[in-house]
Nucleic acid binder design. Structure first.
Length: 481
DNA sequence: TTTTGAGTTGTTCGA
DNA sequence: GTCGAACAACTCAAA
């Protein structure tokens, strides 16, 4: 009987897993996960993501154990681990889902080159995107650089129905598995950071079941309000699927299929659902951009931004990271990120605009911080989105689009509910001043228990001055090019 | 080849 | 307080 090693990476699920389904059809299956921190250069998995990874692996391991199998956990070089497990088990095939990180192709090629001449069949399957990079093309056969035409073209292509979870004959494993606890994936096991993830398990449910639960709960009702509600950070009108998608606990095809079903049962929600699906479209778009330009995480997509006059003040960066800028909506977002591993999308744009435009700190610093703090940190979405805000990316925000953190707060958090949740020291301020405490009369501030510069910072930059500074900085590269 | 219309998420100013 | 125009010019994608 044939034995296939299935290498799990960011596809930690059993449903809609073409590689696993194909492996199950040909014989017994050895499921393996390799934590390979060396393969990805400077972009090894961030702290928050590691916590999720551990939970997700526990979940996958339990599901496999229920079927009588055992998920093999290893650390190290993927190829070395596979050679070891293959020689111990005598497996005659290695199957996996294709990954799209800039460094993945090299690993996949190495596996193929090593085993293909030795009678071990190596096969790579799609499954992490709706459409493979290179399959959505312009009339002249090139990749899109603008989202709208990209998504219009993508919508014309068929999306296959998701596969069911296959019946798998898990192999009796002779190889040993490492102890997941020894991987020190929890933040509290890393002495550099304090009790960081405490309470996360109350907010999130990593794993395939949790992913399906999140999708169903979202499509049940909140999606009806998605078009406008997604901009209100105090409310739960977004799907919060991103960390599940990042680890492949659910595939975009499954999201697609469920959303299409929901349109049939609730036709009046069609436009809201399509708006939600466009966000899945952005994920696709980012992956095809990074396929086009694999330096996206490290270098500006638009060349002229290489000469942008960043300020890069260490003090400003620290204030931003710790949620102490004196702009309540910015601080609330940065504290939500630190405390929950997540930040509402509207607020992500506000804090990113503030860092790159008000503070003139390089977008790479923001990208790095998000990479470490976000549970959903995704190499393509993170890089493309930071570049989009900074103006150096594809289809980027025009340089003069500088979010006003006061106006954004008033517009999208009119009651100050979100701000007060994450900046409790401002809880007693009247809503009129909650987004600009420094404008409140001294009596009002005092009776709210706020002491600017003491228990909440003065604004670290003046909005109007900083805005002009950003416009001037963009003037510099405009002249240069 | 040339032309034309359009481009995720905004702000400010002046009428 | 509300509304439309200006903010620049460029690149992209399709006709």
């Amino acid at each position: 009987m044939s034995t296939t090693i299935v290498l799990f990476r960011q596809d930690l699920r059993l449903h809609d897993h073409p590689a696993l389904t194909a492996a199950a059809q040909r014989g017994s299956v050895i499921p393996v996960f390799v934590l390979d921190d060396m393969a990805c250069g400077d972009w090894s998995m961030g702290g928050a993501s590691r916590w999720w990874l551990k939970q997700s692996l526990l979940s996958l391991g339990r599901t496999i154990a229920q079927g009588g199998g055992k998920l093999l956990l290893r650390r190290g070089d993927t190829l070395t681990v596979l050679k070891d497990i293959q020689s111990q088990s005598g497996a005659d095939a290695i199957y996996f889902s294709r990954q799209y990180q800039p460094w993945s192709a090299g690993t996949e090629k190495a596996i193929n080159d090593t085993f293909s001449g030795s009678g071990v069949e190596v096969k790579r399957y799609p499954g992490t995107l709706l459409h493979e990079p290179g399959s959505v093309l312009t009339g002249s056969g090139t990749g899109f650089k603008v989202f709208t035409p990209f998504w219009r073209a993508a919508l014309k292509l068929p999306v296959a129905m998701p596969l069911p979870s296959p019946t798998v004959n898990w192999a009796d494993s002779i190889s040993s598995s490492e102890d997941l606890d020894a991987w020190l994936l929890d933040p509290e096991e890393d002495s550099r950071v304090p009790d960081w993830a405490k309470g996360w398990e109350n907010i999130w449910k990593p794993g395939e079941d949790g992913a399906h639960g999140a999708l169903e709960a979202f499509l049940e009702a909140p999606v009806a309000h998605y078009s406008e509600g997604r901009d209100i950070p105090a409310r739960r009108y977004t799907s919060r699927l991103s960390p599940h998608l990042k680890f492949g606990e659910i595939s975009p095809r499954q999201v697609w299929a469920s959303a299409q079903q929901r349109k049939l049962s609730a036709p009046e929600w069609t436009s809201a659902i399509d708006k939600f699906l466009a966000e899945i479209g952005w994920r696709e778009f980012c992956y095809q951009l990074i396929d086009l330009f694999d330096a996206m995480p490290d270098r500006p997509f638009k060349d002229q931004f290489a000469g942008f006059p960043w300020d890069n003040s260490e003090a400003h960066l620290k204030a931003w990271q710790s949620g102490m800028t004196g702009y309540p909506i910015v601080d609330a977002g940065m504290r939500e990120l630190w405390q929950t591993g997540f930040m509402h999308n509207r607020v992500r744009m506000i804090v990113a605009s503030f860092l790159t435009k008000h503070l003139l700190v390089h977008w790479l610093e923001g990208e790095r911080w998000f990479w470490d703090c976000l549970l959903d940190a995704d190499i393509a979405s993170n890089a493309c989105s930071w570049q989009w805000v900074a103006g150096s990316g594809a289809d980027a925000a025009p340089y003069f689009r500088i979010f006003n953190p006061i106006a954004q707060g008033q517009k999208f958090d009119p009651e100050g509910e979100y701000v007060k949740r994450w900046c409790p020291e401002l809880a007693e301020l009247p809503k009129k001043f909650v987004h600009a405490p420094w404008e409140a009369p001294p009596m009002t501030v005092a009776s709210a228990g706020v002491e600017l510069g003491k228990n909440y910072p003065e604004p670290i930059v003046d909005h109007k001055t900083a805005r002009q500074g950003a416009l001037d900085a963009y003037e510099v590269i405009k002249k240069a090019s």
